[in-house]
Design a binder for these strands. Structure first.
Length: 658
RNA sequence: GCCGACUUAGCUCAAUCGGUAGAGCAUCUGUCUUGUAAACAGAAGGUCAGGGGUUCGAUUCCCCUAGUCGGCUCCA
């Protein structure tokens, strides 16, 4: 650090050069009060507003509502929470406390896990700290100083020890360089209220935290490894304004209303009988008809796209999974073996080995490739008890599973057309915002096969992903054990993303199974195998659709498409005639001839989220018409029956939402 | 699997500071039927998740098991 004694400095502010006095802080230069602007970007680096600018610096404001601004507010709120926790629970040891999407967390080592009442007390204390307006002051320290000051914080000491190590990841506590401690000072007398090892930056004062709320607590392994001790994590959210926070909380409420577990019960789609065991759903008739629609449509699209359908059993001799490599690499996720006639059997967790046997059942020619085998295959996976969740994480599921065998030359083109196919089908189900994730191997030993093969496969996937024009996110270490994959992440109606389709390249199994084809030159070659699950699993996809549509399916998927509601009992036969016409076109229609009042019938149909209600009373009958009521509550009266039928058929055929 | 909370009628939820439980909706029965989100009346429905323990007595207190929920790890 050169020491320049000068009264004036030249800095660039908002693109314009300015001269300021020496000792000017970024906050002064930006005329920031810590409300709208909470930090500064100096020469591209985020800094506190207290940071003193130097000659030649380029200084920009960090708005509280910007992504960086929010992260800083959240990070500072995490500090306030940690201070409150340590005041209320003096024995609590600090873990880490970073900002995360929509909020922040802080991990603590405490003797007793936090109870809901504890969170209330912590939050109350936090509000006091925020009101007090403690300032965040940055103080560079040497490693030795830091160790001394944080002698009572074993986890922080561990982080100091990790700093600068060969594989040190950037964290909010320690970054590669100089350690810093943030002191929280009383604004009245400047006395120290609390301190934490932290890179910062922070908001200037706890008063700069506009809105926050503690959300929940739970266990979390130290540094994310189940081999480490478990700490207690408290999650909170923080925002640039009360309004933004309320918006977020409202979104959470909306998500809760759409919960597919709740809607599944209300709409009588599926259930999870405890008698069967965890993660083993059953589909009721109304859920079953949705599945049938999904499956029928998938079959049709696959036929058009050159797929062939196969069927394979649920069970196999264990040795098949030794050949495939599943047992050593995936065995822990499989149901345990059982013995029959002295031979060990397994329930299958994946369909691919069986499809390989179909491929291998006879000699294959290059003329047959790409060979696309497809099956709705039931697989069973031993998911750990704590992760089973509704339809999105089950132990028994149906994959719409395809395995495509190609030559290496065809591989890239095939992936490209696969990705287009996948996206086009997802769009037909009403999902139209996507991004891609490329999961690759890392140096962990859970991956099998030659690096050169992985490189080639990864390159083919990356090229396709990049050409798609969709956002591509890297996911190192996320690959399947046998090969890299692209997964399609779809955004739902309220902006949440779900991992759906995957396209996985496999250069291993073809070798392990000795798969071959005869090339044009007469030589024997090994095909490339592509695993492709479009829905992910039919169960999960249905769960996602339930949440996406909040249970109000477009007519082509709705279990009951039309309910006929007579104004009085006498009008029921007329509606039965209308229903007959609709049924002739394959429409799923019911006439509510219960002895409920008409208003009650409407209420019931509305609660079941039926797309079309057809009412008929004297006026309609006289005119040979029916009256529509839609889910919106909107009505269309006196529609001639043929027109009504045509309108309904049209909505179903075009697969539109109504 | 790990940490925590929870489990009362088909559903949503009460109650009992330890003396074996109640409502609304749904169901069934009956009466009544006319225009866009709940007619009226009655009946039936629970070994208070399952098992063990403490106690004169357990739905209530303790332990175990299962399941659910929220996290972690993992994952389609």
């Amino acid at each position: 650090m050169g020491v320049t004694v000068s009264a004036e400095l030249r800095i660039t502010l908002a693109g314009a050069e300015r001269v300021v006095a020496a000792g000017t802080t970024a906050g002064d230069a930006l005329e920031a009060d810590g409300r709208a602007v909470v930090a500064a970007r100096v020469n591209g680096e985020l800094r506190d507003l207290y940071h003193q600018v130097a000659d030649g610096d380029v200084v920009e404001p960090v708005e509280v509502g910007s992504p960086d601004g929010r992260a800083i507010v959240r990070h500072s709120t995490a500090h306030v929470m940690a201070q409150a926790v340590q005041e209320l629970f003096p024995e609590a040891k600090l873990g880490i406390g970073p900002p995360v999407e929509n909020g922040f967390y802080y991990d603590f080592d405490v003797k007793q896990p936090f109870q809901p009442d504890d969170l209330k007390r912590v939050e109350k204390r936090m509000r006091e700290i925020v009101k007090q307006g403690q300032t965040f002051q940055r103080r560079p320290v040497t490693d030795e100083q830091a160790r001394e000051e944080l002698a009572a914080e074993p986890y922080k000491l561990e982080l100091i020890g990790l700093k600068g190590g060969a594989d040190a990841e950037e964290s909010v506590e320690v970054g590669g360089g100089q350690l810093t401690i943030y002191d929280n000072l009383d604004p009245k007398d400047g006395s120290l209220c609390w301190k934490d090892l932290c890179r910062g930056p922070h908001v200037p004062s706890t008063r700069s935290i506009p809105a926050f709320k503690l959300m929940r607590s739970g266990g979390a392994y130290w540094r994310g490894s189940e081999k480490n001790p478990q700490l207690q994590r408290i999650y909170g959210t923080a925002w640039e304004s009360r309004e933004k926070q309320d918006e977020y909380l409202h979104l959470l409420e909306e998500a809760e209303k759409r919960d597919h577990r709740k809607l599944g019960a209300e709409l009588d789609l599926y259930s999870f009988p405890p008698e069967l065991g965890s993660g083993l759903p059953v589909f009721h008739p109304k859920g079953g008809i949705i599945r049938k629609q999904m499956e029928d449509y998938m079959r049709q699209r696959q036929l058009e796209a050159g797929y062939e359908f196969v069927n394979t059993p649920h069970l196999t001799k264990s040795s098949l999974f030794e050949t495939s490599g599943h047992l050593p690499w995936y065995g822990e996720d499989m149901f345990p073996a059982f013995e029959l006639d002295g031979t060990e059997y397994r329930v299958k967790p994946m369909n691919c080995p069986m499809h390989n046997l179909i491929y291998r059942a006879r000699g294959r020619s290059y003329r047959e490739l790409p060979l696309r085998l497809s099956e709705f295959g039931s697989v069973y996976r031993y998911e750990k008890s704590g992760v089973v969740h509704g339809l999105t994480r089950v132990r028994g599921m149906t994959q719409d599973d395809s395995h495509i065998y190609t030559t290496r030359e065809q591989m890239t083109d095939e992936i490209k057309s696969l990705l287009n196919f996948v996206l086009s089908v997802l769009r037909d189900f009403g999902l139209d915002e996507f991004y891609l994730e490329l999961s690759t191997r890392d140096d962990s030993d859970k991956f099998i096969g030659e690096q050169a093969d992985w490189d080639e496969a990864t390159q083919a996937l990356r090229q396709t992903a990049e050409e798609s024009g969709l956002t591509l996110v890297d996911d190192p270490g996320g690959a399947a054990f046998y090969g890299p994959k692209i997964s399609v992440q779809a955004k739902d109606a309220i902006g949440r993303t779900w991992q759906l389709s995957t396209i996985q390249l496999d250069l291993n199994q073809p070798k392990r199974f000795g798969l071959e084809y005869q090339a044009a030159d007469g030589s024997r070659q090994t095909p490339v195998m592509i695993h492709r699950a479009l829905f992910g699993s039919i169960e999960r996809f249905l769960g996602v659709l339930v949440e996406h549509y909040a249970g109000a399916f477009p007519a082509w998927l709705a279990p009951v498409q039309v309910v006929g509601i007579p104004i009085a009992e006498a009008h029921a036969p007329y509606l039965h005639d209308v229903a007959k016409k609709l049924k002739a076109h394959g429409i799923r229609v019911e006439v509510d001839s219960s002895d409920d009042r008409m208003q009650k019938k409407i209420r019931n149909a509305q609660k079941q989220k039926v797309p079309f209600m057809l009412l008929a009373g004297d006026d309609d009958i006289a005119a040979g018409a029916v009256s529509f009521r839609f889910r919106s509550g909107e009505q269309k009266n006196g529609v001639p029956v043929d027109e009504a039928v045509a309108e309904i058929i049209d909505a179903v055929e075009r697969r539109v939402q109504v």
